[in-house]
Design a protein around this nucleic acid. Structure first.
Length: 360
DNA sequence: AATTCGGGGGC
DNA sequence: GCCCCAGAATT
C-alpha cells in the first residue's frame, strides 16, 4: 500500500514546497486572511508588493477596520476585483464588532464573513487552526482531476460539488499536518502539476496518478466554458485647470466600483460638445487603447485638455451630467471635482488611468 | 446555473 | 491570440 496521498504530499511539501513567501511562517489569521483575499484569482508575483504595503499601513485587523473604505480602495488600486477590497474592509469591521477583534477559528464560521467563501475559509482554518477541511482552488481542481483522471466538466455545478467531496476525503488524519498539506496542494499545482507541461517525474503522487497512467494528465481538467467578451467604448476627458485635475468617483457597483477616473462619456459627440464648451487652450488627443477585462473589451479614448482659469468647469460638467441619457456623462457616485496633485495621490485609479497619470 | 466582477504572466 | 491565476457574490 505505502503512504497515502496526503502523507506523500505532506512529506513532499516539507522537503520541496515553498516556505519563504511573506504570508508563510505565521499562524496569525489576519496575515493569512489578507494573503488569501489578495491571492484570489491573482498570481503570487502580483500580490507581493501589495501585501507588504497593506501590512505596513495596517498591522492588525483593528487597524484595517479603522481605515476608511476610500483609503483601502486607493491602496488596492491596480490589483483588480475591487469587490475584494470592499469585502476586506467589511470583514475587518465584522471581526472587530462581532468577534471582539479575533478571527473565528472554525471554517464554517469564517465562511459567514464578507469575502470569505468555502475555500478561503478552509485555507485560514487549516493554516492557522489545524482544522481538517479542504481548499478547492484552481490548483486543487487541476491536481485532483489529473490524479483521478476525472473528466467531468468543471463548468457544471454538480461536478464542482463532486470535486469538493473528493477533496474532502483526502485531508490528513492529523490536524497538525493540515498546514503542510494545504500548502502542499497549492505548491504542487503551482510548481509541478502546472497547467502546461506538468513535471510528473517530480511529483509525489506520480506512482498513483491515474491521469498520468492514462496519458491524459496534461489535458485535464476539462472546461468547456467559452468566454465571450462584450465591447464598450468610452471617451474620457483629462481636464487640467490651474494645477488641478477633474476626477469623478465611479458608482459603488459595477466595474471599478468606488474607484476614480476622469469624467467619461459613452459617445464621442457628447464628449466633443463638452470639450468645446470648455474652450481648452490645448488639446492632446491620444490613440485609443483597449483595456481587457474578464467580460469586456473596453476601448478608451482620451483627450487631455488645458482649460483657462475663467472657464466654469463645474457648470459645464453638471450640465452634461443632467443631459439626456445619450449625451450625459457616465454615472458617478459623486459629482466631478478638482484635485491637486497631492489630492490625486490619495485616490485609487484603475490600471489604465494609473498608467496615463504616471506617464506609463 | 450562469454572470459578474481586473489585471497581469506566460506561451 | 489564448488560458490561467490561493474565488466569491449576485442574479
Amino acid at each position: 500500500m505505502g503512504p497515502t496521498l496526503s502523507e506523500r504530499l505532506v512529506t513532499w511539501q516539507r522537503q520541496h514546497g515553498r516556505h519563504h513567501l511573506p504570508w508563510q511562517n505565521t499562524r496569525d489569521p489576519y496575515r493569512v486572511w489578507l494573503s488569501e483575499i489578495m491571492l484570489q484569482q491573482t498570481q503570487v508575483s502580483t500580490v507581493l508588493g501589495y501585501y507588504d504595503r497593506f501590512l505596513a499601513l495596517w498591522p492588525t485587523v483593528a487597524d484595517l477596520a479603522a481605515a476608511s473604505l476610500d483609503e483601502v480602495l486607493a491602496q488596492w488600486a491596480g490589483l483588480g476585483y475591487y469587490s475584494r477590497a470592499r469585502n476586506l474592509h467589511r470583514c475587518a469591521q465584522a471581526v472587530v464588532s462581532a468577534h471582539g477583534g479575533t478571527f473565528p477559528r472554525q471554517a464554517e464560521v469564517l465562511a459567514t464573513l464578507p469575502g470569505i467563501g468555502r475555500s478561503t475559509a478552509a485555507a485560514i482554518a487549516g493554516f492557522c487552526f489545524d482544522e481538517r477541511v479542504t481548499i478547492l482552488d484552481g490548483n486543487v481542481k487541476r491536481v485532483l482531476t489529473r490524479a483521478l483522471n476525472w473528466e467531468g466538466d468543471l463548468s457544471v455545478t454538480r461536478h464542482e460539488r463532486w470535486l469538493w467531496d473528493a477533496a474532502s476525503l483526502l485531508v490528513p488524519e492529523q490536524g497538525a499536518d493540515m498546514p503542510a498539506y494545504t500548502q502542499g496542494l497549492m505548491d504542487l499545482g503551482a510548481t509541478v502539476c502546472t497547467p502546461r507541461k506538468p513535471q510528473c517525474l517530480l511529483c509525489p503522487w506520480q506512482p498513483q496518478c491515474l491521469g498520468l497512467q492514462a496519458g491524459r494528465a496534461a489535458e485535464l481538467p476539462v472546461k468547456t466554458r467559452k468566454l465571450k467578451r462584450s465591447r464598450r467604448e468610452s471617451w474620457c476627458l483629462w481636464i487640467e485647470q490651474g494645477g488641478q485635475t477633474w476626477v469623478a468617483q465611479r458608482p459603488d457597483t459595477g466595474v471599478w466600483a468606488g474607484l476614480w477616473t476622469f469624467p467619461m462619456w459613452a459617445s464621442e459627440g457628447a464628449a466633443l460638445r463638452v470639450q468645446q464648451a470648455l474652450q481648452p487652450e490645448r488639446v492632446d488627443t491620444q490613440p485609443p487603447i483597449t483595456h481587457v477585462l474578464t467580460h469586456l473589451d473596453w476601448v478608451l479614448h482620451l483627450s487631455r485638455l488645458s482649460v483657462p482659469a475663467q472657464v466654469d468647469v463645474q457648470a459645464v460638467l453638471q450640465a452634461s451630467q443632467a443631459a439626456d441619457p445619450v449625451a450625459a456623462m457616465e454615472p458617478v457616485a459623486a459629482g466631478p471635482s478638482p484635485r491637486s496633485a497631492e489630492g490625486m495621490a490619495t485616490l485609487g485609479f484603475p490600471a489604465p488611468f494609473q498608467r496615463w497619470l504616471t506617464g506609463r
